[in-house]
Design a protein around this nucleic acid. Sequence first.
DNA 1: CTGAAAGCGCTTACAG
DNA 2: CTGAAAGCGCTTACAG
Lengths: 338, 338
Amino acid sequence: MTKKLSIRDIAGELNISKTTVSLILNGKAKENRISDVLIERVVNHVERRDYKPNQLAKSLSTGKTMIIGLMVEKISDYFFAQVAYHIEELAYQNGYKIIYCSTDNDAHKTRELINLFRERHVDGYIITPPAGIEQDIQALIDDGLPVVLFDRYFEEVNSSYVILDNYKASFDAVMYLINSGHENIAFVELDSDQSQMLDRRKGYLDALAVKGLKPLLLKIPFSSTMDQKAARLVNFIRNNNQPEAIFFATNYLAFSGIKALNQLNLNIPGDVAIVAFDDHQVFDIYAPTITAVAQPISELASQSIRILLDMLDPKKNAQFPQKIVVQSAFIVRDSTKK
Amino acid sequence: MTKKLSIRDIAGELNISKTTVSLILNGKAKENRISDVLIERVVNHVERRDYKPNQLAKSLSTGKTMIIGLMVEKISDYFFAQVAYHIEELAYQNGYKIIYCSTDNDAHKTRELINLFRERHVDGYIITPPAGIEQDIQALIDDGLPVVLFDRYFEEVNSSYVILDNYKASFDAVMYLINSGHENIAFVELDSDQSQMLDRRKGYLDALAVKGLKPLLLKIPFSSTMDQKAARLVNFIRNNNQPEAIFFATNYLAFSGIKALNQLNLNIPGDVAIVAFDDHQVFDIYAPTITAVAQPISELASQSIRILLDMLDPKKNAQFPQKIVVQSAFIVRDSTKK
DNA sequence: CTGAAAGCGCTTACAG
DNA sequence: CTGAAAGCGCTTACAG
């Protein structure tokens, strides 16, 4: 392993000072009135020698790491994986790297991860926060660190965030079911009081209320397995006179629901119509295809990273916090055909 | 934002030197015969003041970043997302963080990413290499950097790797189809000469050869969309006298295949039996459920990170390169029921 | 236009 | 047992 080149080597080879090299490399040559000839000589030489400044040393003296911490609920979940993929793209395009991790929706784990990221001096944070992490987010903001919440937010924390208009998406989806002639419509959700769930539930309840229909809710623990979820659903469907339609608050809940319906030998949509919140590649392939509320993934991703980059760039002079609410698309497929 | 505590502050507050604090914090107190009393005083004080050493400064002087670079084909792909999730877990447990990125199977992009990681001084690399990146991998190894290839490897590069026994998995899957009475068995693969594809193809061809059956292959470009893939498959099935069974070399190819079969109104498994390489959550839910070759994801992940950690820890004194070949499980479901 | 020098916050060989 | 000092490789205010 050949010794890595340092700025001192470059300066030495050129018989000039490190300062001059550094200024040129950081685009501050003009404002220091360094001659074009010298600039070119340095740039050429750096290129020829393939010199790359040590980012660690750079970070230590500037205080910037050019790293963004991305904390999603679970990176192996299709929705979050897609979002992460887009955010990564955009971050790299802007010279930032991503360090990511999964919170597993666990406040304790998330707290430790935030501390790790702080120790690493990441420049900014994009977080899908679990319940119970409010104070840590507030502390980040109080310390002047750029934070964008994503997918959900906290009423009591005045932060930037990017979320879906969950209420409207849910309301519209249920209205569609009602207008298709269904009356006995169940809502299957996670056992969680996070903002996105609350809004989805509220949309469901309000839509039913418009027509004076009776709600029927099932809450399922986030951390249960697919089979446990399916088992709960089997019971739920049996014990509740087999609803005409079921609205699932997430796509993996919908998968469990499909499994349950198969176990009960119920036909979709003949016996039970279903709608999933969050689209999935497979919904378009399943027989029948599954009607879904689609989140605009690339928009969610690009808004989040855009806000963060704006925060990171004082020249932008943007106002914060920015609270972005994005609209979903309702994709009608066969699982709701009468 | 309160000024961050530094080791000099701690030393000052305790009226001792930075050296002593540093040695104690790095567990080198004993070998420097520092008194237990002092150790305790320092540890307590550090705790009380909640002092966290600046990792950047630490990295600059030690040359270690405690960061591992993880480059997968596409983080939003279910298989890679799962593997990444496990690797992340294990890395964090061992005090390492992960910086990840997707190669998109593109050598040019991957080359840039490797350079970025090098500039960042990541301590080690886990990579699913695209074709054409052989020399860059070799350069990494030549420079003494720990590298573990994953999912595929290069004949011509003598590196550590962790892969599936693709040949055997494929051979066995096709044998199962043959023994179930199928003769006209197609293989749908990616248009790629990477090791994992070659081995899967070879397994297929050899299994057919055993019984003297005629192969029927379709190659599909990696970068096509789901719909483009499905369209190709529709043509393929039509033009080839509708094979009795189709073996898909990846799970997303299988999804395209299912879509194609649905478009053709063909029944699974009545008209066409199917098997997918790489299991997927949804295969267990789809009606019919889909027979698949399951990769042992957590084993693949844990072996990869284990080798890398061994490389990173000279005390382990392990031998390298290590070449690990892991066995798959064949999960029979309804899509191959006669 | 350019360079010497201090500083970022650690680690560690060395001297006592 | 403990501390002063050099070094990791950058940046940047300051002086000329």
